[in-house]
Amino acid sequence: MAISLQKGQKISLEKEAGGALSRIIMGLGWDAAQSGKSGGFLGGLFGGGESIDLDASCLLFDEHGNLVDAVWFRQLTSNDGSIRHSGDNRTGEGEGDDEQIHVDLPAVPSNVKSLVFTVNNYTGQDFSKVANAYCRIVNAANGQEIARYDLSCQGSHTAMIMAKVYRHNNEWKMHAIGEVGQGRTFDQLLPQIRPHL
């Protein structure tokens, strides 16, 4: 049974997974919120909803808080190959995760202390236009969902610092940050991320 994370909560991924973890998947899912108006005949024919392009990113930081690398829709694999992005989903349509970031934890370079996962609305709408948004951590070895964090907080923000996965005493832990921000791409969130490193 996955743990449902609260803002600010910290967990041991290995304890929640019931053993050693080698590969995890960070899944991001969302839908466009229904507007309540049918949009008339043509709106009904063509769905009537505007498309929402949320983007998941994974930022790699060293122990001094320096950005070492970034995996996002413009760079789908980290320079060392330990982190891979599934590719850009521009609508949120379909069941399950809309974007996934695969992390091979033992292969993450030793100088990387923390991985920060962010979500940005590239199309620029605020989160009041987003429904059913979540991020989750899955054990890639068996498909078990370890932790889930609900992102569907209505508001005027266009981005969120979701979570940090970090090394502590030779194990990987997760901190649900859940801090809202503004920006179409992750780099606009960097000043806000620094205090969490």
Rank of each mutant, 00 (worst) to 15 (best):
A56W: 05
S110W: 04
K37E: 15
L42S: 13
T91D: 12
I52A: 01
K10M: 00
I193A: 03
A70P: 05
D88G: 06
L45N: 03
V71D: 01
L151R: 10
F46P: 04
Y134C: 08
S78D: 01
I161G: 12
Q188R: 13
E99A: 08
E63V: 11
Y149I: 10
C135V: 15
Q75T: 05
G87L: 07
K173V: 02
G92P: 09
R148G: 12
G87K: 09
C153H: 15
G27Q: 11
S57K: 08
Q154L: 15
D150N: 15
G178A: 03
D55W: 09
Q192E: 15
L5N: 01
A140Q: 12
G8V: 02
L115P: 05
M162W: 04
N111W: 03
I193Y: 04
T118D: 05
F41C: 00
S114L: 11
L105D: 00
D97L: 06
A141T: 15
C135D: 02
R136H: 08
S78I: 09
L5K: 04
R74M: 14
I25L: 09
T158K: 08
E95R: 13
V116H: 11
D53V: 10
C58G: 10
E14V: 05
L189W: 02
E63G: 02
G36S: 05
T118P: 01
R84C: 13
E171Y: 00
W30R: 05
L54Q: 01
V103F: 06
E63W: 00
D126V: 07
G81M: 11
N121C: 14
I24F: 11
G81Y: 08
H168A: 06
I177D: 04
W72Q: 13
V108Q: 07
A141R: 14
S78R: 08
I177H: 04
A33F: 02
I161R: 11
G19F: 05
L151E: 00
I3H: 14
G40F: 14
R136W: 07
R194M: 12
N121I: 11
K164P: 03
N121M: 12
L45V: 15
N139A: 08
P109Y: 05
K37S: 15
N120P: 02
V71R: 04
R136E: 13
H175S: 00
R84N: 13
K10A: 10
A159R: 03
A32Y: 09
M160I: 15
M26D: 04
F127L: 07
D150Q: 10
R184I: 04
C58Q: 10
L42A: 14
H85P: 00
L54F: 02
E63H: 06
I146Q: 09
P195N: 03
E14I: 02
S57C: 08
I161Y: 07
Y122Q: 03
Y149T: 10
K113G: 09
L42T: 12
H102C: 10
R84W: 07
Q182D: 04
A133R: 09
N170Y: 07
